[in-house]
Simulated scan of single mutants.
Amino acid sequence: MSDKKMSSSRKHHLKSLMLSIAKGLLEAEEVAAEATRNAYMEETCPPLDLSGSMADLQELCKKLHSKLDKIDEDRYDLETKVSKCNKEIDDLKIKVQDLQGKFKKPALKKVRMSADSMLQALLGSKHKVNLDLRANLKQVKKEVKEESAEQVGDWRKNIEDKAGMDGRKKMFETS
């Protein structure tokens, strides 16, 4: 096996050839798509004959309007079928994952919601719930304690009275 490297000019030449072939194929696909589109339009939509009276034109408009309504109904039916099939596919995927025992937890989004709006979402719009947490609390009256002036007084006197001056002097002398 010989590992010969290709020259850059050869690589460039091959790359340009591939691009030109791909461009030709894309153009051929576009032409084929345009031809099928034109054939379909000629088949389903005959050319308009506008040389007529006002009543004929109104009748033509009514026919076109009825065709549009029918197409809209068909489109709606197809959309519902597709959404139903997609939901069925998702349910089957979930069943398969459950049977395999490998279940991916979906990433949950953080939602900022007050308690009132959460209860309203759970119970529906029929039930108006006003959740006032403070209303359910007991009312407690605070007792105001008035301390006598004798107790507040000078704190040094209270300490001197309790410990005595002699005890303080001995405590500082030993240290």
Rank of each mutant, 00 (worst) to 15 (best):
K87E: 15
Y76S: 12
A35Y: 01
A55E: 07
D74M: 05
L68M: 09
T36F: 04
H65F: 11
M54E: 13
K67E: 14
K84P: 03
A39W: 06
E88K: 10
K87W: 07
K87L: 11
D69A: 05
L68I: 14
K70Q: 05
P47F: 06
D90K: 02
N38M: 15
K87Y: 12
L78I: 08
G52V: 05
T44M: 04
K67M: 09
L64S: 15
S51L: 10
L68T: 07
V82Y: 13
E88V: 06
S53P: 11
L64M: 08
M54V: 08
D56S: 10
I94M: 01
S51H: 11
Q97N: 02
P106D: 09
K67F: 06
E79N: 09
S66Q: 13
G101P: 01
R37Y: 15
Q100S: 01
K102N: 01
E43D: 08
I94G: 01
S53K: 11
S51K: 14
A39M: 07
D90C: 02
N38F: 04
M54I: 15
E88T: 07
K105R: 14
G52W: 06
C61G: 11
K81R: 05
M41F: 04
Y76E: 14
V96R: 00
K63C: 07
L60H: 15
A107V: 09
L78W: 08
E42Q: 07
A55T: 14
I94E: 03
D69R: 03
S51F: 15
T36G: 05
K63S: 11
D90Y: 01
D91W: 03
K95R: 06
K67P: 00
K87T: 13
P46Y: 02
S66I: 06
L68R: 10
Q58A: 13
G52D: 12
G52L: 09
S51V: 12
K105D: 07
V96Y: 00
G101Q: 01
A39G: 08
A55F: 04
K95I: 01
L57P: 14
K81E: 05
L99N: 05
V82R: 10
C61S: 14
P106A: 10
D91I: 03
S53Y: 15
T36Y: 04
D98P: 00
Q58K: 12
C61V: 13
